[in-house]
Simulated assay, not measured.
Amino acid sequence: MRENPFYVDTIRNFRDRRYEYKGLNKVWKDKLSEAKASGNPIKIQEAQDMVVLYDSLQLVHKCILNSFYGYVMHKGARWYSMEMAGVVTYTGAKIIQNAHSLIKKIGRPLELDTNGIWCALPESFPENFTFRYNFMVYHFVIC
Results as ranks from 00 to 15, higher is better:
Met1Lys: 03
Met1Leu: 09
Arg2Gln: 05
Glu3Trp: 11
Phe6Gln: 02
Asp9Arg: 01
Asn13Pro: 00
Phe14Met: 09
Arg15Thr: 12
Arg17Asp: 02
Arg18Phe: 11
Tyr19Phe: 14
Tyr21Cys: 11
Lys22Cys: 07
Gly23Pro: 01
Leu24Asn: 00
Asn25Ala: 13
Lys26Leu: 15
Val27Gln: 03
Trp28Ala: 04
Trp28Pro: 00
Trp28Leu: 05
Lys29Leu: 14
Asp30Phe: 12
Lys31Leu: 15
Leu32Gly: 05
Leu32Arg: 01
Ser33Pro: 09
Glu34Val: 15
Ala35Val: 11
Ala35Gly: 15
Ala35Asn: 08
Lys36Gly: 04
Ala37Val: 11
Ser38Lys: 10
Ser38Asp: 08
Asn40Lys: 08
Pro41Glu: 06
Lys43Asn: 13
Ile44Val: 15
Gln48Ile: 12
Asp49Leu: 15
Met50Thr: 02
Met50Lys: 09
Met50Asn: 07
Val51Ala: 10
Val52Tyr: 12
Tyr54Asp: 01
Asp55Pro: 09
Asp55Ser: 15
Leu57Thr: 03
Leu57Val: 13
Leu57Lys: 08
Gln58Met: 15
Gln58Val: 12
Gln58Cys: 12
Leu59His: 05
Leu59Phe: 13
Leu59Tyr: 15
Val60Leu: 13
Val60Gly: 05
His61Val: 07
Cys63Thr: 14
Leu65Thr: 08
Leu65Met: 12
Asn66Met: 09
Ser67Tyr: 06
Phe68Arg: 00
Tyr69Phe: 03
Val72Phe: 01
Val72Lys: 01
Val72Ser: 04
Val72Ile: 15
Val72Asp: 01
Met73Ile: 07
His74Ala: 13
His74Glu: 06
His74Cys: 09
Lys75Gln: 08
Gly76Ala: 11
Gly76Glu: 10
Gly76Thr: 15
Arg78Val: 14
Tyr80Ser: 01
Ser81Phe: 05
Glu83Pro: 00
Glu83Lys: 02
Met84Gln: 01
Gly86Glu: 03
Thr89Ser: 08
Thr91Trp: 00
Gly92Phe: 00
Ala93Leu: 02
Ile95Phe: 04
Asn98Phe: 03
Ala99Ile: 10
Ala99Asn: 02
Ala99Ser: 04
Ala99Tyr: 00
Ser101Leu: 04
Leu102Lys: 02
Leu102His: 03
Leu102Asp: 00
Gly107Phe: 04
Arg108Glu: 07
Arg108Leu: 09
Leu110Ser: 06
Leu112His: 09
Thr114Lys: 12
Thr114Val: 14
Thr114Ala: 09
Ile117Lys: 01
Ile117Val: 15
Trp118Glu: 13
Cys119Met: 14
Ala120Tyr: 07
Leu121Val: 10
Ser124Met: 13
Ser124Trp: 12
Ser124Ile: 11
Ser124Pro: 10
Phe125Asp: 07
Glu127Tyr: 08
Glu127Lys: 14
Phe129Ile: 14
Phe129Val: 12
Arg132Leu: 04
Arg132Asp: 06
Tyr133Asn: 07
Asn134Ile: 14
Asn134Thr: 13
Phe135Pro: 00
Tyr138Lys: 06
His139Ala: 05
Phe140Ile: 05
Val141Asn: 14
Val141Asp: 11
Val141Gln: 14
Ile142Asp: 06
Cys143Met: 14
